[in-house]
Amino acid sequence: MTYATVPDTHPPAPRGWYKRNQIAVTPFLFLAPAILFFAVYVIIPIGQSFWISLHEWDGLGEATWVGTANYERLLGIGEQNMDRKFETSFWNNIKWLILYLLAIPAGLFIALFLNQTVRGIRVYKSLFFFPFVISQVVVGLVFSWFYLPREGLLNALIGLFGFGPVNILGDPSLATYGIIAAGLWPQTAYCMILYLTGLNAVDPEQVEAARLDGAKGWRMLWYVILPQLKPATFIAFVVTIIGALRSFDLISVMTNGGPFGSTRVLSFYMFEESLSEFGFRMGYGAAIAVILFFIMLAFIIYFLWSMYQDERGGR
């Protein structure tokens, strides 16, 4: 009996495991370095900070487990009072959050002002924007000189209107506002550029149609333009909130937390506790950082949720 042999349709050499699973494996090979770096320097440290915040630790010797004692001391749970410095820092953070948001309408205002096509407007736009590119350290220095009681230009200007000199950064009730104003300068520039880009993409037909219907000025802005600027507003909101909670450079450069600790915010207070010359209190610092993290987390979840909605809508 003879059997007809089935011709061998397989390729001569068996393909390697990688070749067969290429599409499944490649993304992980490409992701590996980024994930490794990100995990080591960002993800794992978040967990470690939680752990450290439950200890008392000077950064060198052995850490002692203290449970939630750091948090109790910060928030004043039980017998003790709330940490006064923490309280000041927290309320300053709230001031930063609220006042920093002014950058969004201010940026929109300047963008509307500059959204014209006269000669040289491009140069104006870049010159209005470029404070954003300057490092916050230099912005801080520039503004602290601007505010100087004797040499500063600000006092010279308000002197023209007959007001006496004010020492903004030396006055505990004004210093924080002075720093926030300095921070608003680059932040407004950023929001402006976002809105300029957004305005560029506004649908001209809708604007014309609204004009024919008699819409103009504020009503046009509110009902026709702003809805189309929603993506720009979202990004402006995200970067402004993050900027407000990250405020550190300006405070460190302009007042170093003073006068009398009145300009501290959580991020600065945390740094001071952990690495100050009075000794390293890493555990206490980490506890402050954890609280700051939770404030941020509320916003992060909102941002991610919005982005997730977008992702699903986009598919």
Binding site: A34, F38, G285, I288, F293, M307
Partner: peptide, 16 residues
């Protein structure tokens, strides 16, 4: 995860 990590305040990473 990448996006969220990017928004995290620096201070929580500082000590570790």
């Amino acid at each position: 995860m990448f996006i969220a990590g990017n928004f995290v305040p620096f201070q929580i990473l500082m000590v570790p």
